[in-house]
Amino acid sequence: MKKYFLSFLTAVISLFVWQITVMGFNIEAWILPSPSRIFVAFWQSRALIFYHLIPTLIEAVIGLTGAVFISIFIAIFMERYYAFQKIIYPFLIISQTIPFIILAPLLTLWFGFGLPPKIIIISLVCFFPITINLFDGFQGVDSSILRLLTSMGASQKQIFKLVKLPASLPSFFSGLRIASAYSILGAVVSEWMGADRGLGILLIRSTKSYLTDRVFAVIGIITLLSIFAVLLVEIIARILIPWHYYKLKIRK
């Protein structure tokens, strides 16, 4: 806890300076509301924010889950079939240079304003970091370990189950950590294309009504949600692969 103290202090001071500045210069609330005002706005519209938070969260969870399944499937196929790896790898890289958000209007055209186009967008945004990290995890297994298992007469299937799968878990979770933050972002942005509920919609509506304090409140909630998603992945990882964190601790 001690090592975070200075960062925490910096955050508190920044908020304080912000508050003083707004009050001191009489800045109008629709341009820059003070932190205290933002908090009041949050508290007053908490039921509304919660109402819009639910669909965003559902989209993010389904989209991320979809991305995890797609990633596991592609990564295992790439690992298993060298030809598939050769063919698909360039596409994977190129797909990352496409900002998937630009596909949103097209997907809306095809799938309407409901859940499906949003889930597709989120999965597209999230699958890359998971796939690449998982695949790198498979590839990064110590070649001596593979030699050892070959000398024992282990089959490819045994090697995969006994070594590659467990060895790749740490990098799988690094990918998932990044993807979990993307999933919230993806959900919010995909709602801009059309929806009647969601934090993205609330954000747009509040902007159009010049409710700047509520805009800040929603931004704050989205940020917290992303942080929470990353923390959740971190906690799951610490439960499932305790041995990995043990290693990090020893190295210090």
């Binding site: 030699r147 692969i241 990995h244």
Partner: peptide, 13 residues
């Protein structure tokens, strides 16, 4: 054979 290397190659997990 029981084959062993210079590195222990124990599985960390």
């Amino acid at each position: 054979f029981g084959y062993m290397f210079q590195e222990p190659l124990l599985f960390p997990w």
